[in-house]
């Protein structure tokens, strides 16, 4: 996304990043389960300045019918950005980028959802990015897992996601917009902490073999932090008044 500027100071001499975070500190994360009235399950996430709403429907009949599978249910994911979510107004029609992100998020969620229990049906996940600020696909995947759980769809685990990356020759956790544009590498990771499986992994940028290993480790550790917040969001909705 955009050119790489060398001029921006991404890390100062004290190891603080451009927004004041330490190398392994994620941005502020707030996850809320539920919220939409018509959707079977929903969630809302604020991840730094990202604001994303997710609604889930299903399992339900498949339209068009030829998409249905007699052996298993199918998962359909749409990732979509609002025209006002980014700096310059975005054309509301889906872009190639949005179509690709929809596909990788779908493939990241599929191992978690027990679709084989619902043959001939579809589970639809609709992701709406209200405001974008770098790392939307990770925030969206995190929120989508919570919305699927909120819909009561049987799952093996939830997928937590966050990006690791490299700026100023240092491996960092949770790449923000500036670091994505001007940094050296960006590696979004989706991970199922209980099953210990990585279900989303992308990379753009150059890493040495050592940095590569470290990046994956930092990302997986970050996912574990996000996972706790996902569980807390569901706890707050379903068991919120107990124990107070």
């Amino acid at each position: 996304m955009g050119g790489r500027e060398a001029t921006m100071v991404l890390m100062d001499e004290n190891g603080k990043r451009c927004d004041g975070r330490t190398v392994d500190e994620p941005r502020r994360i707030m996850i809320k389960a539920g919220g939409l009235k018509n959707a079977d399950g929903s969630s809302y996430i604020e991840f730094g300045d990202n604001k994303i709403l997710v609604g889930v429907f299903g399992p339900r009949d498949v339209h068009p019918k030829h998409m249905s599978d007699t052996d298993t249910g199918i998962l359909r994911v749409r990732y979509h950005m609002e025209p006002f979510s980014v700096g310059e107004r975005k054309n509301p029609a889906p872009s190639r980028r949005e179509i690709e992100i929809s596909k990788v998020i779908k493939e990241a969620l599929e191992p978690a959802v027990m679709l084989e229990k619902f043959p001939r049906t579809a589970v639809d996940v609709f992701i709406e990015v209200l405001q974008a600020d770098g790392g939307t696909r990770c925030a969206a995947l995190t929120a989508a897992s919570v919305a699927l759980a909120d819909a009561g769809i049987p799952m093996r685990d939830m997928v937590a996601a966050i990006a690791a990356g490299k700026v100023a020759d240092t491996v960092i956790l949770d790449v923000n917009n500036e670091e994505d544009q001007a940094g050296q590498a960006d590696m979004p990771i989706g991970y199922m902490p209980s099953l210990e499986k990585i279900t989303l992994l992308q990379l753009d940028g150059v890493l040495t073999p050592e940095e590569y290993k470290k990046c994956v480790q930092v990302g997986v550790d970050g996912c574990k932090l996000v996972y706790e917040l996902q569980k807390k969001a569901l706890n707050d909705k379903y068991f919120g008044n107990k124990g107070d």
Partner: peptide
């Protein structure tokens, strides 16, 4: 001014 019904607004 535009208006769009998002698919998450209704089944």
């Amino acid at each position: 001014c535009t208006a769009e019904l998002l698919p998450l607004s209704h089944p």
